[in-house]
Amino acid sequence: MHIFAKTAATAVALTLGAASASAEGKLVIYHWFEYIPQELLDKFTAETGIEVTMDTYDSNEAMLASLKAGGMGTYDVAVPGDYMVAIMIGEGMLDEVGDGELKNKGNIAPEWADPSFDPGWKHSIPYQWGSTSFMVDTAVYDGDIDTTDILFDPPAALSGKINMLDSQGEVLAMAALHLGIPQCSSDREQLKAMNDMLQNAKTHWASFNSDTAKEVLVSGDAAVGQIYDGFGAKARAERGSLKYAFPTQGYVAWMDNVVLLKDAPNRDSAIAFMDFLLMPENIAAVSNYARYGSGLSGVGEYLDPELASLPESNPPASAGPAVFIEVCDEATQAVYDQIWTNVKK
């Protein structure tokens, strides 16, 4: 059935001229929205002759769901966050990059040499890293914003004007920080408290949007919004009164990584693309566009000097710890799923 479908699809596509024929090969990327400049993809095509198609997603979980729903075998690379890389390895969804396949692997910065989510970078390469916190429109509220109370127990001025990311990982991790309990806690009292706290907090929330996280803040539809630091920097450029918060309770840190998917239809192109992104000048182009840090050494000279001084990537001394999202076991995850369902309903 598989082969029949593919042959037939190819035949149809060819007769229509829908498939852009290319001798050099293709690459199908599954990527976050607004996360790679088109010019960089064009440059990759110009250098290698590989034609790039890209689909986008707006949360790690949505990407996982779509790949599981018949998406495997159609994409070559995806860009999951740290904890999602670990999950995908566990699910057997990633292919292994052989030793020496990536010529530029040596460019990975020493501090990122051996990440816990993919020891030895066997399936992935670093893409960008940053933080997830929230922004507040200081024109609407001028009190202290460096506390998770803003999200979970907001002052009256901000109630009903809060946009949350539509992402279980990021929302529940912040909730755990707010309560000062460990992530993936299996303590019943703590979980109950978290559920109750979120039930109360959601009465203050206006919407769940990830892909419009910037838009709602810039347009003024929301006065508070959970957001990634670089996306926040872009939002501030369009609306100066927005300020990125570094809560004393802590905030979420993440690293997104380019992974090689199992059954990739164009594995060679995928390897070429990963090698391409391991070149400092190329990954610097991503950083300049998306306003996040890269995991390579030697990027300094290519970076927009303004990046170093972004308030969004320079936490003050008062900031709490930056924590990575943890992967829970199945039984615990079931409870977290239930809590998330309770939040969303």
Partner: peptide, 18 residues
Amino acid sequence: TLIFFNFIGFTRGYLTIL
């Protein structure tokens, strides 16, 4: 339709839409 294509192992693409 999604469940059906998934069950018979059709890879999603141009043909499934058609």
